[in-house]
Design a protein around this nucleic acid. Structure first.
Length: 585
RNA sequence: CGCGGGGUGGAGCAGUGGUAGCUCGCUAGGCUCAUAACCUGGAGGUCAUCGGUUCGAAUCCGAUCCCCGCAACCA
């Protein structure tokens, strides 16, 4: 089966903190790894979102060009994703020739099909500078509380919302010149022609999507979708394909194309398609350049063609994003796919997560209330961080990163339960059985537990209930510890060596199962377990189900024992906070 | 009345009419191969507030308070 894992494209303005990872990046990776172990042909694509005002704002702040911002942060993001072992098949960016080509082409198709229409709206215009300014770049006085330097949408001083044109003495933040609201022509995405199909699409996803995601999407539909502007007056963005548009009938053309770009939200979601195409082109050697600028992976026996993923009714598409992206993925992108009339595969599940907060407050770099994702993994290890996030994903409500729970999670669950079980079994085998797997066979109790854990947790992960999936696996670890205690192998070994051997044989099989079960959540631990046991790593083989237990044969020699997880000292953790970007009072 | 979600022991949550539960934490004791797991017992909740329906309400109805997300040119 073909599975497309489409992950929201993060803005490259240097903001990827722990909340981004826990919100959508890590969940997508866990899900993708699981799908691959099942033997499915998985294409996991995403990339840096290079256009839009957040990029130009950051560029202004750092006094460099937008493309320098893109280059700088794209590299940092790539390094971060490699560090966290996010298993993208392709992580690219929207500032590629390929993306521009696909985005423009899809734009034209939508224009041809009448899904894109032209219309008039009002924007702030500076006569002096002879250009329009985005709202982000306009400031003035609040008409209610008279506070100065307020944005035109909402006054931060009194919290009131402003209507268009209410702002007093609006001026450009960049040049200081006066601006006035002026009519300007733009293209709009219109839902009229796709509305019925769109509603059918949503209705059919009722059982698939999370309840609140579905309910919220219904809320949008109930309210009625308004046409949305999809062009902007900007310097930084993807050009309208003007030459091509000029071949269209007059009524589809704007009077003035000057300075108009495709609005970032429209072309960014097209990245799911263009990314798949780029991957395909790279696999077949059509694109060879800048391999250092991307994460690029291909598994054996994977299909080379993007068409198998995008023009295939049986392909399953899963999208991962934060809640701020909901409507773009449950409605707007599907509307475009439907409107293209090309038979592109529609989303199966749109996995929307809430946000992860930090000790009860929003992450905020400017307020020194953040955790540097790179450093936290350097200090505490990638897997402990992945584990903690995975057990606290904001799947249905906001989650919280707290140091207390991080410490107890690592010390009690990873070290005390998981690490301890592995360690006590392996040291026992080393001391009493010269590191050889003793003779034995699986007891029914253990066999059923392994079987049930694989199927239960697998089912939960398939439903993208990742927190529960992990907790089911940890229940298995608790079972393992209980089993070891109940059988009291340290007593039995004194007068019944054969029986002790059988118990340990069972324990070692449990560890083998764990090396598979942990692969989606903690890939590095999975590999280290396999290395310790000197057994093959959990392996991705397209077309073959490796989400299963494999016997370690009696007589097999296990390798050197290492401590996988280390206990955290609360005092050291406290001392490290400031290194991670957190203001310590 | 813009849309949507939420308020249950210290923390995270389950519980949609019938004696208030789970996991973690805390605590006393036992056991001890181990990075201290496991076993037995214990403490801890006026289920946001007020009112109503009912023999009976965490659960249904009404009102109120509080928290969060989305929307309005901010993916």
């Amino acid at each position: 089966m073909k599975v497309l894992i489409a992950i929201a494209w993060p803005y490259v303005n240097g903001d990827l903190h722990v909340g981004h990872l826990a919100g959508y990046l890590l969940p997508a990776d866990i899900f993708a790894r699981f799908q691959r172990l099942l033997g499915r042909d998985v294409l996991m694509v995403s990339g840096s979102d290079c256009y839009g005002t957040p990029i130009t704002v950051q560029a202004d702040k750092e006094r460099v060009t937008p493309s320098e911002i893109v280059e700088k942060y794209h590299k940092l993001d790539l390094a971060l994703f490699r560090q966290y072992a996010l298993s993208y098949n392709l992580y690219t960016k929207t500032a590629t020739a390929n993306h521009k080509e696909i985005a423009q082409e899809l734009f034209l198709e939508l224009l041809k099909n009448g899904v894109i229409k032209k219309g008039v709206m009002q924007q702030y215009y500076s006569v002096e500078d002879k250009k329009f300014f985005p709202d982000r770049y306009v400031e003035g006085m609040c008409p209610h509380c008279k506070a100065k330097d307020q944005r035109s949408d909402q006054c931060e001083a009194c919290g009131r919302w402003l209507e268009d044109g209410e702002l007093i003495n609006p001026a450009s933040k960049l040049t200081g010149s006066k601006v006035v609201l002026k009519d300007t022509e733009h293209y709009f995405l219109s839902f009229k022609s796709v509305g019925k199909e769109l509603e059918e699409f949503v209705t059919a996803r009722k059982d698939e999507w999370k309840k609140w995601v579905w309910a919220e999407t219904q809320g949008w539909l109930k309210e009625g979708l308004r046409d949305r502007a999809i062009t902007r007056d900007l310097d930084w963005g993807i050009d309208l394909p003007i030459e091509e548009i000029k071949k269209f009938p007059k009524e589809k053309q704007l009077e003035d194309f000057e300075g108009k770009k495709i609005y970032v939200w429209l072309e960014a979601v097209m990245g799911y398609l263009s990314g798949a195409i780029e991957w395909s082109r790279r696999v077949s050697g059509d694109i060879k350049d800048d391999i250092s600028e991307v994460i690029f992976n291909k598994y054996e026996k994977q299909s080379r063609s993007w068409r198998d993923f995008w023009l295939n009714k049986k392909a399953e598409h899963y999208y991962f994003m934060g809640q701020d992206n909901l409507v773009f993925h449950t409605l707007l992108w599907p509307a475009m796919l439907i409107g293209s009339k090309r038979g592109y595969t529609l989303p199966k599940n749109v996995v929307v997560n809430k946000f992860m907060n930090y000790e009860g407050k929003k992450f905020s770099k400017s307020r020194n209330w953040t955790i540097d994702s790179k450093k936290i993994a350097e200090i505490y290890g990638v897997d402990p961080v992945r584990y903690y996030m995975a057990s606290n994903l904001p799947e249905n409500k906001e989650a919280n990163f707290t140091w207390d729970s991080f410490i107890s999670s690592v010390n009690n669950e990873l070290v005390g339960n998981l690490g301890n079980f592995i360690h006590r079994v392996l040291t026992f085998v080393e001391k009493n059985f010269r590191s050889e797997v003793p003779e034995g066979e699986l007891s029914n109790e253990v066999r059923f537990e392994i079987r049930d854990t694989l199927s239960d947790s697998g089912e939960l992960i398939q439903k993208v209930r990742l927190v529960e999936g992990l907790s089911r696996i940890m229940k298995f670890v608790a079972f393992a510890n209980r089993y070891f205690d109940k059988e009291a192998v340290w007593k039995v070994v004194k007068d019944d060596r054969k029986k002790a051997g059988e118990i340990l044989y069972n324990c070692l099989q449990i560890i083998q199962a764990l090396s598979v079960l942990l692969y989606p959540y903690m890939p590095d631990s999975s590999i280290r377990l396999a290395n310790m046991l000197q057994i093959p790593e959990a392996k991705v083989e397209t077309g073959k189900n490796n989400w299963r237990y494999r016997e370690i044969k009696p007589g097999h020699k296990i390798g050197k024992i290492e401590v996988i997880y280390k206990k955290l000292d609360p005092e050291e953790v406290e001392a490290n906070k400031s290194k991670l970007g957190t203001k310590v009072s």
